[in-house]
C-alpha cells in the first residue's frame, strides 16, 4: 500500500525564463564542483606514485596512475600490532549487531506509537522527537558515568546497545508507518484474531520496506564511521576507522596509503547509498514535522 512518489518529467513547465534556467545551471555547476572536486582529489591522490605526491607545483590530476598506495596500505595493515582483520571484525560486528537491533526495537516501538492509541504514546514520541534537537555530545560525560556504572566500559556493549535506540530511526519509521500503513488493513487483521505482534510483523512491516532500508543505512553509516570511542581502551576492541587514522599518524611517507585508506572507507557508505537512494528518498517523503 506504500504510496509511490511521483517522478515527474516536467516538460510542460510553467513560468520558466531561459535566463533563470541559465543562472540556476551556473550556480548548480559551481556548487557541484565545490562538492565533487575534493572527492575526486582523494581518488587522484590515492593513485599517485610517490614522486607525484611530492612534486612542485602540485598537480590535481594523476599522470602515471599506480595501485602501489593500495598495496602499501595492505602491507602496513599486516605489520600492525593488532591484526587488521581484528579491527575490521570489530567494526563489522558492532555495525551489524547494532543495526539489526536498532531495526527491530525502533520499528517495534514505532509501530506501537503510530498505530496503537495508548495513554502515554504521544508523550513518548514527543520526547524522542525533542531529542533530535540536541547533539549527542551534550550527553557524553554523563553517559560515560552510566556506562561505568553498568560496567560496560571497554566492551562491545558500550557501542552496540545505545545504537539500538536511535531517535532518528524511530522518528522516520513512525512517520512513515503513519502515512503508509492503512488502519483498515490492520483492523481487519485484528478482527481475524491476529495478535498485535503478528499484525506488526506480517502486515505492517512488509508495507514499510523503504523505511527499513533507510533505518538500516543510517544506523550502519553511523556505526561504520565510528572512530575512537571514549568507552573503548583496549587496542583489540578498537574500530577499523580508528586504525585507519593511525596510518595517517605515521607521517608524510604514508600520505599515499592514507589517501588509499580514505577511498576504501568512503566507498562502502557511498555504494550503500547508490543502491538504496530511491528508498531513502521515499522514506523522507513522510519525514516532515507537523507542529
Amino acid at each position: 500500500m506504500a504510496k509511490k512518489l511521483r517522478t515527474r518529467k516536467h516538460k510542460v513547465v510553467l513560468n520558466r525564463s531561459a535566463g533563470g534556467d541559465a543562472g540556476i545551471t551556473i550556480v548548480l555547476a559551481l556548487l557541484g564542483a565545490f562538492m565533487f572536486l575534493p572527492m575526486i582529489y582523494v581518488v587522484m591522490q590515492s593513485l599517485k606514485p610517490l614522486d607525484e605526491l611530492w612534486m612542485f607545483p602540485p598537480r590535481f590530476f594523476v599522470r602515471n596512475p599506480t595501485f602501489k598506495n593500495y598495496r602499501d596500505l595492505f602491507m602496513l595493515m599486516n605489520t600492525s600490532w593488532v591484526p587488521f582483520s581484528r579491527y575490521i571484525f570489530n567494526t563489522v560486528f558492532t555495525s551489524v549487531v547494532g543495526t539489526v537491533g536498532n531495526l527491530f526495537f525502533s520499528s517495534l516501538a514505532a509501530y506501537a506509537m503510530a498505530k496503537i492509541k495508548f495513554p502515554g504514546g504521544q508523550l513518548m514520541f514527543r520526547t524522542v522527537r525533542t531529542s533530535l534537537m540536541f547533539h549527542s555530545t551534550v550527553t557524553a560525560v554523563t553517559s560515560f558515568i552510566i556506562m561505568s556504572a553498568l560496567n560496560w566500559i571497554d566492551t562491545y556493549w558500550a557501542i552496540i546497545v545505545p545504537a539500538w535506540a536511535t531517535s532518528l530511526g524511530l522518528y522516520l519509521m513512525k512517520q512513515f508507518m503513519e502515512t503508509n500503513v492503512s488502519d483498515a488493513v490492520l483492523e481487519s487483521a485484528r478482527l481475524d484474531g491476529a495478535s498485535e505482534l503478528r499484525t506488526f510483523w506480517v502486515i505492517a512491516m512488509p508495507m514499510v520496506k523503504p523505511a527499513w532500508l533507510t533505518l538500516i543505512i543510517y544506523s550502519f553509516q553511523d556505526l561504520w564511521n565510528k572512530g575512537s570511542s571514549i568507552y573503548i581502551h583496549s587496542e583489540q576492541l578498537k574500530s577499523f576507522n580508528y586504525a585507519i587514522g593511525q596510518i595517517m599518524a605515521g607521517g608524510i611517507k604514508r600520505a599515499g596509503a592514507h589517501a588509499a585508506s580514505m577511498v576504501i572507507m568512503m566507498l562502502v557508505p557511498i555504494l550503500v547509498f547508490v543502491i538504496s537512494q530511491s528508498n531513502i528518498i521515499e522514506t523522507m517523503g513522510s519525514s516532515g514535522m507537523k507542529d
Binding site: 575534493p38 585507519i244 568512503m266 557508505p269 557511498i270
Partner: peptide, 18 residues
C-alpha cells in the same frame, strides 16, 4: 546529482582531504 552533493556527508573522515 543527488549523490554528488550528498556523498561528502556520509564519507566519514574524507573531509581530511581538506
Amino acid at each position: 546529482v543527488t549523490l554528488i552533493f550528498y556523498a561528502p556527508s556520509i564519507s566519514g573522515q574524507v573531509y581530511l582531504i581538506w
